[in-house]
Amino acid sequence: MIFKQSSSRFSWNEFLIETLIRASGFSAIFFVALIFIFLVREGAPAFWEVSLHNLFGTRWYPIFDIYGTLPLILGSVVVTVGAVAIALPLGLATAIYIGEIAPRWVREILKPLIEVLAGIPSVVLGFLGMIAVAPLVRRYLGMPTGLTAFTGAVMLAYMALPTIISVAEDAIDAVPKAYRDGAYALGATHWQTIWRVVLPAARSGIIIAVMLGIGRAIGETMAVMMVTGNAARMPLEWNAFFRPVRTMTATIAAEMGEVAQGSTHYHVLFAVGLILFAITFIINAVASIVIIRGGPRRGGRLMG
């Protein structure tokens, strides 16, 4: 009786809570829009203050008005692709081990440990990379210096791993038990079940894991600035991955502090931020399309 009465009446409490929740939901859109508007306002002037030929040239000497962003874009791409190439197999294997193979007690130890890994500040990893990893890279890969795109990719892979593992593991965990039972009933081995049933069924979640990992990697600044050498060179040779590069994020971080506000250099740095924003936007869009095209989560075509 009491329940009925209260539910039929207009409740101010509920209205307030619903409004607050709705507001925080919309605030995400609002903030992204604000950031985008700010970036465009500060970065767009670069596109008429600097000729496109200069802006997409191959040399970056900002204090002499040479603003070629191509080495920076390619630098970010090389480091990010490298990081994902290292982190994806490792992360996926770990997720499969935790989700499908590990006994309960191993899982109980591994999961919190991986979360600890996610909590290590990037400047600490950068320091580790500079002091410990870079000398090893120089010594054992025979490169002139250990401050290379590869060193950066290794550090970034470590940073992206916890994200990739936990999201992929969640996706694997969410595959219904009935799928596995079905596979076993057809006589599939444990590995066949994992590889041909569980992974395809968890595909969209795994793609999200990879995309989040890429997002973490391409936006990371501090560790990358400390270990990649920051030389604005075109990474085009066959061994460019093992040579120094300069990423977009490191450039913004290193130069923004000293630049005169409102100068061309300032606008170009924001334009670099705009390019970075556009790249992450495209990655996310492609990921969404892939997921939508792939049909509903855990749906239909499994063995295909």
Binding site: R59, Y61, P71, G229, A231, R246, A254
Partner: peptide, 9 residues
């Protein structure tokens, strides 16, 4: 400076 110069922060 050569583009291969490493710029240290």
């Amino acid at each position: 400076f050569s583009p291969d110069t490493l710029l240290m922060p």
